[in-house]
Design a protein around this nucleic acid. Structure first.
Ligand SMILES: [Mg+2]
Ligand SMILES: [Mg+2]
Lengths: 352, 352
DNA sequence: GTTTTAAACATGTTTATTTC
DNA sequence: GAAATAAACATGTTTAAAAC
């Protein structure tokens, strides 16, 4: 007998090989609600849930976008159970009273809301979408998974938690609803994270438009799509010196490191969790009032350290995305939680 | 004034654009030890450390490969400080008495050993390598960072720890020496993780050789390189149905989920942390004695769920890499720590 | 056996574009 | 304004090939 290898369970396939385009419609799923959500369980699978050994809790639905406070006040370690997930006979139009497709963030909220401890691994969220929505399209493209990850990462209502499962075992990552999301009964807009976009004017004739493709329907309600193709995205400078639009660099060690402040050590990395107030280190290099992008020169990456002396023991002085830019203040050790103003990603501006 | 954007701090550039080859030699670093390690601090930077406000602790070096037990018995939250890091005047040949370049795992150990709480973010490890070794080559390629990550991930002496830095802030990931690594004073071989390679024979004429390029010097001691190019890697079937050699899929929720066991739910994902003993669920599908790779069919990914019924609330039944394969036993809820035998990656077989 | 290097891939973060 | 989508990139995991 051959032992095949689950070979085709690739999720994204973006940077690997060019992926074929796909259609928006799934025939097998037979959606029963609003065109992007299926019944909580497909019709041919609904009787399965009757054998589960946990009775449904008769709570109400709380995932409406506008309802500010809900009756759900479960603790973070307590699963919010609503009747619309566990009882297929309930009315299905009380979940969303807004027109158009349900946003990813709302669907993720519902997926996590019904999970034990309000948390799921990423694959579990994928599975939930595959069975309960039609965002998971049948054909090859996995853009819906990209969108899920995008929403998980950018929406402050979802937080990644790592669970240790014993000595010598790798930790397991979950996505969990924050207590605020549970308390409010919904998550806020994912797009609140956006920057002011004022940094783009500083780029001048950089023209780093990577000319993204326009094959799928973008945001908004898909009423009449495919109207204006290529509206104004005409500038296309092929052989420019490409400057990557963003540099995701890792977060910052803020556990009491930086016990060796050295004013001569040029900081090159400030993480989102720190982001100290713009101190004099910034003016020292004449880069004040920078919002979106901060840098010294486009090519000073490795040679930088040759002139800055030895780093402190924590080795935390590395580059950081300019959107979270700022400079580490060497005189402030053990400074935790100094995020202020525009240095705070909108992702984190959630009302507690 | 222009506001440039740290644009060229890309670390890998593998899947993005073809990267140029690079040389093995760094002229500016002036290595003083064994050809792949520099002095703890480069000569032109050594006086900088004298102004640091933490005096060096006169401990001994413990990173020898063969010394089984060392005098270092620090707690996991305590930094191991050795004199060879903080005192540039110490003898530099007492660190490694083995010939050839120091392995990545040893260098990472030293980087973490000197860090506060024996942990560093990934970028901090990069920085340490850039300043203290010549593995970080000056030219474009970032294969050394790939190697660092490879060693961090595969060597059980290094563990990823996530630190919460306050409410509403994203957690920060560190790499930390395990207590065992600290206790032993060294890490074990990174390659202990390797599978039996017996699963490869089941592939037959699959010929999924992705024809990796051979531009850099590979392992071992670089004595006389470039001897036998293309020794026996001749089979190269271009238009085969490509079966990806591995599918990294996410770990498993083992926090007390699976409260809804349903024998009809076909499990499709078993994570490394769980990996239950191969139970009857495996024989149910005729896939016993599978070591490397387990699968049902190469193309049953999405359609699988249409026939398996609803998943339990935790949504954890997803695919998992076959090397860690096995099937979730629906009858065993809350089964934590059931990793046994060959299901345990060698990474986790560290002697406590 | 070991190590390095390359690579495929999953996952997480962020920006940009387009559409509404 | 919000959302979906694409994409670039960083990070983490694993396999494979090549050299020792
Ligand atoms: Mg989030
Ligand atoms: Mg490890």
């Amino acid at each position: 007998m051959a032992v095949p290898c689950m070979g085709s369970f690739t999720t994204e396939g973006k940077r690997q090989l060019p992926q074929e385009v796909h259609s928006d419609w799934i025939g097998v799923h037979s959606p029963v609600f609003k065109g992007d959500e299926l019944s909580e369980f497909p019709a041919h699978l609904q009787p399965v849930h009757a054998v589960h050994n946990i009775p449904p809790s008769p709570l109400s639905t709380i995932s409406s976008y506008e309802s500010p406070e809900s009756l759900v006040l479960a603790s973070p370690t307590m699963t919010i159970q609503t009747v619309d997930q566990l009882s297929p006979g309930s009315s299905e139009d009380d979940r969303e009273d807004r027109p158009g497709p349900t946003p990813y963030s709302h669907l993720i909220f519902r997926a996590l809301k019904d999970a034990k401890d309000n948390k799921l691994p990423l694959q579990g969220i994928y599975n939930w979408f595959e069975r309960n929505t039609d965002k998971a399209k049948s054909s090859g493209s996995k853009g819906w998974q990209n969108s899920i990850r995008h929403n998980l990462s950018m929406n402050a209502g979802f937080e990644a938690v790592k669970e240790e499962l014993g000595p010598g075992k790798k930790a397991v990552n979950f996505w969990r609803l924050t207590p605020e999301a549970i308390r409010h009964g919904h998550v806020q807009s994912t797009t609140r994270y956006r920057k002011q976009a004022s940094a783009r004017k500083a780029l001048g004739a950089n023209a780093r438009a990577a000319q993204r493709q326009r094959t799928e329907t973008k945001g908004g309600n898909p009423s009449e799509m495919a109207k204006a193709r290529h509206p104004n995205a005409g500038h296309d400078e092929p052989n420019e010196i490409y400057r990557p639009p963003q540099m995701t660099l890792p977060p910052y060690p803020m556990d009491g490191h930086f016990s060796h402040p050295d004013p001569r050590v040029m900081p090159s990395y400030v993480p989102p969790a720190l982001a100290p107030p713009i101190d004099n280190a910034l003016q020292r290099y004449g880069m004040e009032s920078v919002i979106g992008c901060t840098n010294l020169s486009p090519t000073n990456n490795g040679s930088f350290y040759e002139t800055m002396g030895a780093a402190p023991d924590n080795e935390a002085f590395t580059l950081r995305h300019a959107a979270h830019a700022g400079w580490y203040s060497p005189s402030s050790d053990h400074n935790i939680g100094m995020m202020t103003g525009s240095d705070v990603p909108a992702d984190l501006h959630h009302d507690l």
